[in-house]
């Protein structure tokens, strides 16, 4: 099926030109990076931009750099770039693990982290990693830059804190001060090319500190604050885990859809919580299942 909608195409080489085009087209322009979401949406006529601004000509957006404890991920960095990066694997293993669950290599070769968070679907696998590492999203607009904490980014399904004439320049992950282990578990119907029915990212920091975030079980990916409050400061025991599992249904509000029922999602989320926490804690000292190994 060809694309029916007609649009102008621009491929600027400088960030300033992107800003100029965005304000010229007043919300009628869309940015194109990998296109795995945008092109499909234009085809389906869910979006009909007057202009498409291809940012792949802007060199500085391709950067993936780790300096002074911060990982800078330019808007053009793809999930394949992230998975192939030793720094990501070593320093932000939970993020690496979740990146590997996204779609398939043929999509990850094009799809970018920036695009993923701009489309902002409830099931986005990068959501939990952004929330537990408390990443910052750096956006550019005509008035300069703003820093939006990932915790304030997701406003609703396909709704984010990004304003119409702004765009994401980079995403910054800061290394947690304490030694940590993590896990990302994705429940899909099969491996590869499926959206999550439940996604759970867990960061376990030395000294019994936990950060947990779910995706696909509510309108936006979100932190599980009640479970965190219960777990924080206490040594992990079987009975504590049981209590935590009982809180799951208060933290998430899944729907029944073509992929799974609400009840099934809640049930499996509890199992994922237990396995995820155990793996994350074991991984603090380099034990437990290797990153990337399936936990469900």
């Amino acid at each position: 099926m060809a694309i029916v909608h007609e649009f102008e195409y621009f491929k600027p080489e400088r960030i300033e030109d992107v800003i100029k085009l965005l304000s010229e087209y007043k919300g009628k322009a869309r940015l194109l990076a990998g296109g795995t979401d945008l092109v499909v949406r234009i085809k389906d006529e869910l979006e009909s931009p007057a202009a498409v601004i291809d940012i792949k000509g802007i060199e500085e957006l391709k950067k993936l750099e780790f300096r002074e404890g911060k990982l800078h991920i330019g808007a053009l960095v793809t999930f394949t770039d992230l998975i192939d990066s030793d720094i990501v694997k070593k320093q932000f293993p939970l993020f690496w693990e979740s990146s590997k669950t996204i779609a398939s290599p043929g999509i990850r070769n094009r799809a970018t982290l920036a695009g993923n968070i701009c489309s902002g679907v409830p099931s986005l696998d990068s959501g939990p990693a952004l929330l537990v590492y408390e990443a910052d999203i750096i956006v550019r607009g005509a008035e300069g830059e703003r820093v939006i904490p990932a915790l304030n980014w997701f406003l609703g399904p396909r709704r984010t804190a990004l304003k119409e004439e702004e765009f994401v320049r980079e995403i910054v992950f800061s290394l947690p001060a304490k030694n940590h282990g993590g896990s990302y578990i994705k429940l899909g119907r099969y491996k590869g090319e499926d959206l999550a029915q439940v996604g759970l990212g867990i960061l376990a920091l030395e000294g019994n500190e936990y950060r947990l975030a779910f995706c696909a079980v509510g309108p936006v990916p979100s932190r599980a604050k009640k479970i965190e409050a219960l777990l924080n400061g206490k040594p992990l025991t079987d009975s504590l885990l049981e209590t935590a599992k009982r809180l799951v249904s208060e933290e998430i509000s899944p729907i029944t859809d073509v992929r799974a029922t609400k009840e099934y999602r809640v049930h499996v989320a509890k199992i994922m919580l237990e396995r995820g926490i155990r793996a994350a804690v074991e991984r603090i000292d380099g034990n437990g299942p290797a990153y990337g190994e399936r936990l469900i």
Partner: peptide
């Protein structure tokens, strides 16, 4: 050198 889906790429991007 990378496998991609040509059905969701604009031809103009291949320039």
């Amino acid at each position: 050198g990378k496998g991609v889906r040509s059905c969701i790429i604009l031809a103009i991007e291949a320039d």
